[in-house]
């Protein structure tokens, strides 16, 4: 099986594109990291010296303790609520055939197909009218809109592959639906639930648009605070913004690495794809 010159060139070109992409991506990330520990960095390859003081500066200037606490509360609440609402719904959709099932599926698919900005603006309007705009509750509610359907759509195939006879057996041995859920289903579903919720976690930390539209001064998550910092750059030292960016990156990466132990990378983007096809 000899390869022609053309096919060798083609393979080379494909790898060159991958390489170019990754080099620029890594360069970009490295720029931010380098800048965050730079004393002074003007017109040279590398900064004049290194320091960690920007991290302390960023922590104070941007009230990162508050921001991180808000982020933690918002993300935690979204993860727990998505699980509590999404998993039972996924169970019903995976196991029962009922008249309005197709309509329910479509309803769940919509928030994933419409970009957040499009529905975020009317949603923010409604939340502000209800007095929830700018509050932590508002941020949590807004973030549930894409995450609950996401959990449902990830969990449906997972539940479908569990043999229904296991549940039937539990029922035969006298467990009611609730007991069956707690003692039989939840342990079997745990790996899937864990994967789905980790993905929700990573996505919620990075969810900019909805949080941006709904949050107020006291309810900004890290990514929104970062946006405002970059937007108003010039007011603060660039390095402290970068320090904040690195902190944001670190939070996301930690969870991403944990998530990748349980899920295939394609799952992070493969939201609802199965149901569309």
């Amino acid at each position: 099986m000899q390869k022609s010159v053309m096919s060798r060139l083609w393979v080379f070109a494909v790898w060159a594109v991958i390489g170019l992409f990754l080099v620029n991506l890594m360069g970009l990330i490295a720029s931010v990291v380098t800048s965050s520990v730079a004393t002074r960095w003007l017109g040279t390859w590398l900064p004049a010296g290194f320091t960690t003081r920007w991290y302390f500066a960023a922590w104070d200037e941007f009230q990162l303790d508050d921001v991180l606490w808000v982020t933690f509360q918002a993300v935690g609440a979204v993860v727990v609520l998505s699980g509590l609402l999404g998993v039972p719904a996924a169970y019903a959709l995976a196991r029962r055939e009922f008249p309005a099932k197709r309509a329910v599926m479509l309803l769940l698919l919509l928030p994933l197909l419409v970009p957040p900005i499009t529905y975020g603006i009317p949603l923010a309007t409604v939340l502000y009218k209800a007095g929830l705009g700018g509050t932590l509750t508002g941020v949590i509610l807004a973030n549930l809109v894409p995450t609950v359907p996401f959990v449902v759509l990830v969990m449906i195939p997972f539940i479908e592959q569990i043999d229904p006879r296991t549940e039937a057996a539990a029922r035969v041995f006298g467990a009611n639906i609730f007991q069956m859920f707690v003692h039989v289903l939840v342990p079997m579903l745990m790996p899937g639930v864990l994967a789905a919720l980790l993905l929700v976690l990573v996505r919620t930390i990075g969810m900019f648009e909805l949080t941006f539209l709904v949050s107020g001064p006291g309810s900004q998550t890290l990514v929104v605070a970062l946006y405002y910092a970059v937007f108003a750059s010039g007011v603060r030292a660039v390095q402290s913004i970068d320090a904040m960016a690195v902190l944001y990156m670190a939070t996301t990466l930690v969870w991403l690495i944990i998530a990748l132990r349980f899920v295939n990378p394609t799952q992070i983007v493969g939201r609802g794809k199965r149901s569309v096809t």
Binding site: L25, L28, G206, L260
Partner: peptide, 19 residues
């Protein structure tokens, strides 16, 4: 390749300002 998806548009924009 998943990295930029999870980092999100805000961080990529911030990094681009430098890079």
């Amino acid at each position: 390749l998943v990295l930029p998806i999870t980092l999100g548009t805000v961080l990529v924009a911030e990094g681009m300002l430098f890079y």
